[in-house]
């Protein structure tokens, strides 16, 4: 992930979906699904197959290349599937690079950022969604407005600010950079507004404070939204390249993206098969998280759609 604004864009997705989903009772796959004639159906499947190949071929090629010998990667004609799988690449990459350090750093950053983002984001969202006080709407407009402001435009003053505070070249810089985005607030607010007011009203009658309502009522009810927010924040931080590039100069602090990039640019005789093994390792956790979380994610979206 490159920056806050892009993260905001990413996060917009569930929010947007939910809003769209709740605006009208969503007929499951109803619209436009006409009875196709057999010829049309076949055409559709052909298109689907072509698109699937186009989408997945680069990944297939990456994984296959990670199992080749160094020479096979560039052999002409192209070897799509290596004759023997060189699993040794997956052993060597750990000794020939600092993969372990990079993964540890990235994991630490991604977990810290996700935790802080969910905590401060959902807390602020409650203020925006359920409290009424002067200045609230203007402030929220400012939050939303920053969606249109690219991070690239203010990365320099931000860098100077953080350098003056002596946090550049520490993990703090990345944590601060990623953890307080407007996107978490936006997503959680969208979701909170789908939770019936009567629930918090009842809790208020039982003597719960606003903080209590947030903790005991809103948090448990918003688990689907928290899941999507955590998933997206984690993936974004894991994938972020620009933030670490600007702030983390000490190789001991490098994230996996910086590490792998340095692996490419350092060596003219880069063993590309090894590099591909490294890339595959870096993509696997994201793939797993995505596949596991996807179901939860889609369910969260579907239920909120039905609620509306």
């Amino acid at each position: 992930m490159s920056n806050l604004t892009e993260a905001m864009v990413t996060i917009e997705r569930p929010g947007g979906l939910r809003k769209l989903g709740s605006s009208a009772p969503r007929p499951r796959r109803a619209a436009g699904a006409s009875k196709l004639r057999p010829a049309g159906r076949i055409l559709m499947y052909v298109l689907l197959a072509i698109a699937a190949i186009g989408l997945l071929a680069p990944f297939f090629w990456m994984v296959m290349s990670s199992l080749k010998t160094a020479n096979e990667v560039f052999s002409v004609p192209i070897v799509w599937i290596p004759e023997t799988f060189v699993w040794q690449n997956y052993v060597d990459i750990w000794t020939e690079s600092n993969m372990l350090t990079w993964i540890r750093n990235t994991l630490f950053l991604a977990v810290s950022v996700t935790f802080l983002q969910v905590l401060t984001g959902s807390f602020a969202a409650y203020g925006f969604a359920r409290m009424r006080f002067p200045g609230r709407d203007v402030l929220f407009l400012v939050y939303v407005g920053t969606i249109a402001v690219p991070w690239q435009s203010y990365m320099i003053p931000q860098f100077i600010l953080l350098s003056d505070l002596k946090v550049s070249n520490t993990f703090w810089s990345i944590i601060l950079l990623q953890a307080f985005g407007a996107f978490g607030v936006f997503l959680m607010k969208q979701y909170y507004e789908t939770i019936p007011e009567e629930l918090s009203e009842a809790a208020r009658l039982d003597g719960l404070s606003e903080y209590g309502i947030w903790r005991r009522i809103m948090l448990p009810l918003s688990i689907p939204a928290i899941a999507s927010l955590s998933l997206l924040t984690f993936v974004n931080t894991w994938n972020d390249y620009l933030g670490p590039l600007i702030y983390l100069r000490d190789p001991d602090l490098w994230t996996i993206q910086l590490g792998l990039k340095s692996f490419v640019s350092n060596l003219y005789d880069t063993n590309y098969a090894l590099l591909f093994a490294g890339l595959t390792i870096s993509v696997i956790p994201i793939a797993i998280i995505f596949l596991l979380g996807q179901k939860y994610f889609v369910e969260g979206i579907a239920t909120s759609g039905m609620k509306g």
Binding site: F123, A124, L139, Y143, V149, P157, Q158, L161, V185
Partner: peptide, 21 residues
Amino acid sequence: IGWSFILPNFLGFGFLTLVPV
């Protein structure tokens, strides 16, 4: 109370986004 909810996030957001802009 409303501000107290928003403040933790706003401190970071204001300092790292609004001030740099």
